[in-house]
Design a protein around this nucleic acid. Structure first.
Length: 576
DNA sequence: CTAGGGTTAG
């Protein structure tokens, strides 16, 4: 074997820097350091191998008289994955200043990886301009990377524009766009991409399926999810690929179908920690504490190591079910047995758990002893559990802390006002009203979704933008009058704010969604509503009546939990 | 083996 071939073969099998240094020494000794393929191989190992050494790569690079594109690429790639991704951009600029080599598609791919990681949107624009100048704007892989880079920098609209302009989009490009929309929370858009994909004649693969299922889960688009389930099963994705099963479990759980989630879980041949966690979290948000705990134990028996999400699921389950002792036990065990540091969400579950169980003093003490006592989240949690138990005193403590950190919002004022109202303290109610008015505190716009015949329909308060609006309002009036004859009284407790702000008497979004569901789905079909806020007392009560009057199961996914309404009763026992 | 895509929590 002649020299260069020998070195290339040696480098092929190289797996450590020690070994590499020895090979390098031989290369120098025998005068092969100027050989382009040998130096590229040396460089690429140092710059990009996990066992490599970026500093050594730079050293090798600086010894090159006339670095070729491949050399630059190796170094740019290595830098983009290192601790300082922006170095990749400086290298790129240096490359452009020199005349010895031009960038290729690989160069831009690595450069864009760096832009995505560096969270530097202006750098994306710079790279974008270079790509256009160098004539790579139609390259599908470069384009896909650019989409990702913009999306990871929060410029989803720019990502969308770049994507639309890729002339020959392949499967990876489409899948990438779907996952970018998912990450940006634009789940509607993710599902719309699917329609465009079908028209383009491309077959979906398991990546597509996973992305779409995630968006279905977020939207509560059960019908869409079921279709994808069928498709995944028919194409063998579900058997072959653990990601697909995991995404299905999550989709079914988030769409209120724990039974289906469970059956997917039971049918999986291989399970990873996502599988277990998705199931545990699913049980948690539905408040099935005993099952969540026993599943957690099975997970341990199966030798799968729990992580912070496993514990989050467990704690949610405990808090929704009042298992305070268990919750405390798991909260401590996650640190002592698994060295997992509880984060804000875990602390939130604990405050919620103490609070729901009526242990408001413990909740307060817990917040004070936590590392997150300066975060509004925990105080807001204390406030909302104070409402459950009608504690004026604790509610005032909570809002005072929120005010001190200038974090109080309209929702907080509504909560405290509810507490005052329950305590028949009309002055308190008036004070809250005044506070909102004087300080111009903004309300979070509420919305609800329902999926009808595979289409996600979104409603806001008093929405009249739908083609069926007239019908919807008629149906609601009918519902209310029938409910009234059965004893429903409009308490309108949380409505004062809405009336006050909008000067309207419009219906809340979930009731509009429910009315449309009743109108457009066959008798006996259960309805799933997804909301971004909590259900108000009035809607909760009306929905109970609706489930009875129309003999429908109505599932409402709240910001934090599920309400299963059936025959006039809600699974939360009016305790949320 | 020089490139681009995936799930839970937030």
């Amino acid at each position: 074997m002649c020299g260069a071939a020998k070195f290339l073969s040696l480098l092929q099998g190289c797996n450590s820097m020690d070994r590499l240094r020895k090979i390098h020494a031989q290369v120098l000794l025998q005068g092969y350091h100027g050989h382009p393929a040998v130096s590229a191989k040396l460089l690429s190992f140092c710059a990009t191998s996990t066992a490599g050494d970026l500093a050594y790569a730079r050293l090798l690079f600086s010894g090159l008289l006339c670095p070729a594109t491949d050399h630059w690429n190796a170094l740019i790639r290595g830098s983009s994955r290192g601790p300082a991704p922006l170095d990749a951009l400086s290298l790129y600029n240096a490359m452009m200043r020199g005349a010895s080599s031009r960038p290729d598609a690989f160069t831009f791919s690595f450069l864009l990886k760096a832009c995505a990681l560096a969270k530097a949107e202006p750098k994306c624009r710079e790279a974008h301009a270079s790509i256009v100048r160098s004539g790579f704007s139609s390259h599908v892989i470069v384009g896909t990377n650019l989409v990702r880079a913009y999306a990871d920098n929060g410029s989803i609209d720019e990502a969308r524009r770049v994507f639309d302009e890729i002339p020959d989009k392949d499967l990876v490009a489409w899948n990438s766009m779907i996952s970018c929309f998912c990450h940006a929370g634009l789940h509607d858009d993710a599902l719309k991409v699917y329609d465009r994909m079908r028209h383009s004649g491309l077959a979906l693969d398991d990546f597509t399926v996973v992305g779409l299922l995630s968006s279905c889960a977020h939207l509560g688009a059960l019908g869409f999810g079921v279709r994808i389930h069928k498709f995944a099963e028919e194409n063998g994705f579900l058997r072959r690929n653990v990601f697909v099963g995991n995404a299905l479990i999550d989709m079914y759980a988030k769409c209120g179908r724990l039974d289906e989630a469970r059956s997917v879980f039971d049918g999986m041949r291989r399970r990873d920690n996502f599988t277990w966690n998705s199931m545990i979290v699913g049980l948690g948000i539905h408040g099935h504490a005993d099952e969540a705990i026993s599943l957690f134990q099975r997970m341990l028996m199966a030798g799968v190591r729990p992580n912070s999400i496993s514990f989050l699921g467990l704690l949610m389950a405990c808090s929704h079910h009042g298992l305070v002792e268990n919750g405390i036990k798991y909260f401590h065990r996650m640190g002592s047995a698994y060295s997992i540091k509880p984060d804000l969400k875990h602390y939130g579950c604990m405050v919620d758990m103490y609070g729901r169980a009526g242990k408001l003093d413990e909740a307060l003490e817990f917040i004070h002893s936590s590392p997150f006592k300066d975060d509004p989240v925990l105080w807001r949690m204390l406030l909302s559990t104070s409402r459950i138990h009608g504690s004026v005193e604790m509610g005032e403590i909570a809002i005072q802390n929120l005010i001190e950190m200038s974090a109080h919002n309209a929702g907080d004022c509504v909560l405290l006002s509810d507490i005052y109202e329950h305590a028949r303290d009309s002055q308190g109610v008036a004070r809250m009203r005044k506070m909102v008015k004087d300080q111009g505190i903004k309300t979070t716009p509420g919305w609800s979704w329902i999926e009808i015949h595979g289409e996600v329909r979104k409603f806001v308060v008093g929405d009249t933008s739908h083609a069926e609006s007239e019908e919807i309002y008629k149906k609601l009036e009918e519902m209310i009058s029938r409910a009234a004859s059965l004893g429903y009284a409009t308490e309108r407790s949380a409505d004062w704010l809405k009336n006050f702000v909008d000067s309207t008497t419009d219906y809340h979004s979930e009731m509009l969604a429910i009315a449309l569901g009743l109108l457009r789905t066959p008798k006996g079909t259960s309805l799933l509503i997804v909301k971004n806020l909590r259900v108000c007392k009035d809607c909760h009560s009306l929905t109970k009546y609706a489930s009875r009057i129309y003999d429908r199961e109505i599932v409402v996914r709240d910001r934090v939990r599920f309400h299963h309404f059936k025959e006039g009763i809600c699974s939360c026992n009016d305790y949320w």
